[in-house]
């Protein structure tokens, strides 16, 4: 035991390799100019990812996303979602004229608040932690360092 236990702990990856950090993201246009029902897609910079803050199914809190959507619903409420479908993690598409997210893999549909309209997904889209950046078209999203990825 005295030999095996430290080895098992050794095998568990150290957290120091993947430091949490805030990622400044430049959007295609300022959030203030977003019309209701409109959204913007954004990507994580190289060697970083966004950290999901909630969700279920394939999207648990703490899982990584490499892209996201900043979207205003019909009432003007702003949401920032990870791009991954909560079913099996495919990237959902924003279909503006139908006012919903559609997953190309298995047909899950979400409304602009991230709630499930149609399965197989059983959980809403995951939110990302974000705040307004220093310029009007910048947001700062909670992320993590991922050396060598992307």
């Amino acid at each position: 035991m005295a030999i095996v236990l430290p080895i098992l702990v050794y095998i568990y990856p150290p957290a120091g390799n993947n430091k949490k950090q805030d990622l400044p993201i430049k959007l295609d246009k300022p959030l203030g100019e977003l019309a209701n029902g409109e959204g913007l897609k954004f990507q994580a910079p190289a060697e970083t990812g966004f950290v999901m803050t909630n969700g279920g199914g394939d999207n648990a809190a703490g899982k990584i996303a490499f892209a996201g959507y900043a979207v205003k619903d019909a009432a003007g409420k702003l949401n920032v979602f990870a791009i991954n479908c909560s079913h099996l993690g495919c990237s959902v598409n924003l279909v503006t004229d139908k006012q919903r997210f559609e997953c190309p893999c298995h047909g899950s549909i979400f409304n602009l608040d991230g709630q499930v309209i149609h399965g197989p997904a059983a959980y809403p889209l995951s939110n990302l932690d974000w705040k307004q950046g220093t310029t009007r078209d910048q947001i700062v999203v909670g992320g993590i360092q991922l050396k060598g990825i992307g």
């Binding site: 568990y12 990856p13 390799n17 993947n18 990812g49 899982k63 990584i64 991922l146 050396k147 990825i149």
Partner: peptide, 16 residues
């Protein structure tokens, strides 16, 4: 989650 992290060697599938 433990198995996943150990297999991946980190929070996501990558060089580790």
């Amino acid at each position: 989650p433990f198995i996943e992290t150990v297999l991946q060697g980190g929070p996501t599938l990558g060089p580790n």
